[in-house]
Write a protein that binds this DNA or RNA. Structure first.
Length: 729
DNA sequence: AGTCCCCCCATTTTT
DNA sequence: TGGGGGGACT
């Protein structure tokens, strides 16, 4: 068989990885080394050369985006649809299993996915029911606790029944939460994985079937797997299964949400015998950028070890700009991008990366000031938007009356005179009779347990839902969606809000109708002819599992802005990393533990390796944070890059921010207006005891003048100009 | 039921 | 500094 189309475009290491004997394989794939390509080509190799049936292959990713990208690339390479192959996210695959085996998994046939927002709402309600003080036990923290347990594979029954107040409270809550989910057939994200794992353990026959079916398992971004994902894979692979994992321990940046870097570090032992292949040739960056990245990451301990190289050019040195403050930093970056654009390059090719979202504001303002188009990644995605969630809640109730989360969301939205007292009544009934709130409402209305008005309003709402269901039985999904947003009164509700916001909400609702239509076509293509009810349920699952895109309009040539985390996997010719300062990056919340610091360093490694041609690292002497001025030193990460690869960008003599920042003022304060030996803002100075620093600002005049200096060694200080004995450098 | 005000908080994000 | 959430007030 001709395999040239699979192997031709590959380098030696890639080819080795693609053609490695069927068995356990760890591909340690550096940034920009062709990781996805190897995965895709290996799948093609297994099918076309090893004779593995597509249905024998399971490919796992973390995000829907990479799953669909992989699916597309496999189909392109094979030249035909993937057939029986399973390609999806951990959660998507777990969901698929649970839908197929809901009985064995101990679930209701109509179980629904509880996303984070509904999960949080449920926890808040439980805290109230349990009469726990929400000040002492913030719902967010409780949610965090529960998810953390599930990520570790722990149910409430696994936890100790003693311990301190915190442990006992969390245990009580966790138990109540599990009961509430079971009662209403809700499955949260962690539960999908946990149940799927338990499904293996509790049903040996089923496990055996899947172990024989999936003889080849491939996992992307393996360094991001958490304990339960790892356990799930391990059980499935069993003693016989062959597993190929691809990842990069140096790009493990999600430890804080349960990812275990140990999983990749110990793979070759845990899955022995296993082959290790390193992909170190980089096709993205200049050698300068790669050297910097290599050197930086070499400060981490316990690495599997890997050194990126390129046969490309050396490129420009890495520019380091020390700004006075965050405004200066932003302006500098905008300046550089303007120059780039003037040279005929695209704004699309530029990205500004930052450690925390709060940093985006200043940058945005600088962009707006000069009218430069930009796009910020992050924020709410389509199915996370309020209006979409509201509309989807109606659809969910149509599919499943016992969906308490959906019920609570829309029972009084738009307002239909059902107040908190009525709702509390219903909740109590539901709890006491161990039924869903919908069922409680039915009983309450039937037995006259509510006031006349409340009963009428609740009855009206239930009629509406029933009516929607009747309609849905006989109409296409997108028509149902359209009917819902009109009949429910959601349109009027959002219209009332007025303004630009209302417009965009209404547009989104229309878009939801389109999304439903698109889903129908997609579903019809995949599974023959699903019934209306099946399509409806499928659409609801899709919305929960795949929140959709953050932004729809991507046509304008605009500068990209995003956090370092969300930049993983992307590449840009021109990269700026802003706020490379101690306390911000590495962030002070992570800096006190070695693991935290090393993860920050990996994050920096990720940032650097995004750059193809040119990299700027920026830091500011002073930065306004939470309303107050902070002084910080350049990040240690800058120093960890060899000096010969860096180039300091000289600070400009003047900062044109506000008048108080005009250069001459410091000199004036020194009693030497217009002097050319005087100090200006940004000037480097030496103090006999504090050492070297930079002039930041000054106040007052004559003998009372005070100068603010950010010293390298001791940080920000105000000094009386007359006594400061400063020496200009 | 809706608005307003005050207080508190403040990495990183996918499913 | 600013946003979000919760409580109190109209």
């Amino acid at each position: 068989m001709d395999v040239s189309h699979i192997l031709n475009s590959l380098n030696d290491a890639q080819r080795q990885a693609v053609t490695a004997d069927s068995g356990n394989l760890l591909v340690l794939a550096g940034a920009g080394s062709g990781k996805t390509r190897v995965l895709v080509h290996r799948i093609a190799w297994l099918i076309q050369m090893e004779g593995i049936a597509p249905a024998g292959i399971l490919a796992v990713t973390f995000t829907n985006k990479s799953a669909s990208e992989m699916r597309g690339r496999i189909e392109t390479l094979l030249g035909h649809p993937i057939g029986g192959m399973w390609v999806g996210t951990f959660h998507g695959l777990a969901h698929r299993l649970l839908r197929a085996h809901w009985q064995e998994a101990g679930l209701s046939e109509k179980f629904q996915i509880l996303d984070s927002d509904d999960q949080l709402r449920l926890i808040k309600r439980l805290l109230q029911t349990l009469e726990l003080d929400e000040g002492k036990w913030p719902a967010k923290q409780c949610q965090w606790f529960i998810n953390q347990q599930k990520d570790e594979g722990l149910r409430s029954t696994h936890l100790e029944h003693y311990g301190d107040d915190y442990n006992r409270t969390m245990l009580t809550l966790y138990q109540a939460y599990e009961q509430a989910c079971d009662r209403t057939g809700m499955v949260d994200f962690g539960e999908l994985l946990l149940r799927a794992h338990e499904l293996w353990l509790k049903n040996p026959g089923l496990l055996d079937y899947y172990q024989h079916r999936f003889t080849e398992i491939l996992v992307d971004e393996f360094q991001d797997t958490n304990a339960i994902q790892y356990a799930w894979l391990r059980v499935l692979a069993g003693k016989r299964g062959h597993i190929t994992v691809v990842g990069d321990d140096d790009q493990s940046i999600y430890g804080w949400r349960g990812a275990r870097i140990e999983n990749i570090q110990q793979f070759t032992q845990d899955f022995a015998p296993a082959t290790l292949i390193k992909l170190e040739q980089n096709y993205r960056s200049t050698s300068t950028i790669l050297k910097a990245a290599n050197k930086l990451i070499s400060n981490n301990a316990g690495r599997l070890g890997k050194e990126l190289w390129t046969d490309g050019t050396e490129g420009e040195p890495i520019s380091v700009y020390g700004a006075f403050n965050e405004q200066d930093e932003a302006r500098f970056i905008v300046d550089q991008i303007e120059q780039w654009v003037r040279k005929g390059r695209r704004r699309d090719d530029c990205v500004i990366l930052y450690r925390s979202n709060a940093q985006s504001r200043e940058l945005e303002e600088a962009m707006l000031r000069v009218g430069m188009p930009y796009r910020i990644y992050g924020g709410f995605r389509f199915y996370e938007r309020l209006e979409i969630r509201n509309a989807m809640a109606y659809l969910r109730l149509v599919a499943n009356r016992d969906d308490d989360a959906a019920f609570e969301r829309v029972i009084n939205l738009p307002v239909r005179g059902i107040g908190n007292a009525t709702l509390e009544n219903l909740r109590t009934i539901a709890r006491e009779q161990r039924v869903s709130v919908w069922q409680a409402a039915q009983r309450a209305v039937a037995h006259g347990m509510l006031g006349a008005r409340a009963a009428q309003n609740v009855g009206g709402f239930m009629n509406l839902i029933n009516q929607l269901e009747e309609y849905s039985a006989e109409h296409e999904l997108h028509l149902v969606m359209d009917y819902i947003i009109k009949q429910s009164g959601l349109i009027q509700h959002h219209e009332k809000e007025g303004g630009e916001k209302a417009n965009s909400r209404l547009e989104n609702l229309e878009e939801l109708v389109n999304a439903a239509k698109a889903y129908t076509m997609e579903a019809n293509g995949n599974n023959g002819e699903p019934t209306n009810a099946e399509r409806l349920a499928g659409f609801i699952d899709k919305a929960a599992l795949d929140a959709g895109d953050a932004q729809a309009d991507a046509h304008e040539d605009a500068v990209q802005m995003m956090t370092l985390h969300s930049a993983k996997g992307l590449e840009f010719p021109l990269v700026f990393i802003a706020g490379v300062e101690e306390g911000l990056f590495p962030h002070k919340m992570s800096g006190d533990s070695l693991e935290g610091l090393e993860e920050e360093r990996r994050l920096c490694y990720v940032g650097i390796t995004r750059a193809m041609e040119k990299l700027y690292l920026c830091h500011a002497e002073s930065r306004r944070l939470h309303g107050e001025e902070n002084f910080s030193r350049p990040s240690r990460f800058i120093r960890e890059i060899p000096a010969e690869l860096r180039q300091e960008v000289r600070m400009k003599g003047q900062v044109s921010r506000a008048t108080s920042w005009q250069g001459g003022i410091a000199a004036q304060a020194m009693g030497a207006p217009d002097s050319n030996n005087g100090l200006r803002l940004g000037q480097r100075v030496r103090h006999p005891s504090f050492g070297e620093g930079v002039v930041l600002s000054c106040e007052g005049n004559g003998n009372n003048a005070r100068i603010q200096i950010n010293f390298d060694a001791v940080g920000g200080k105000w000094l009386v100009a007359a006594y400061a004995r400063l020496e200009a450098l």
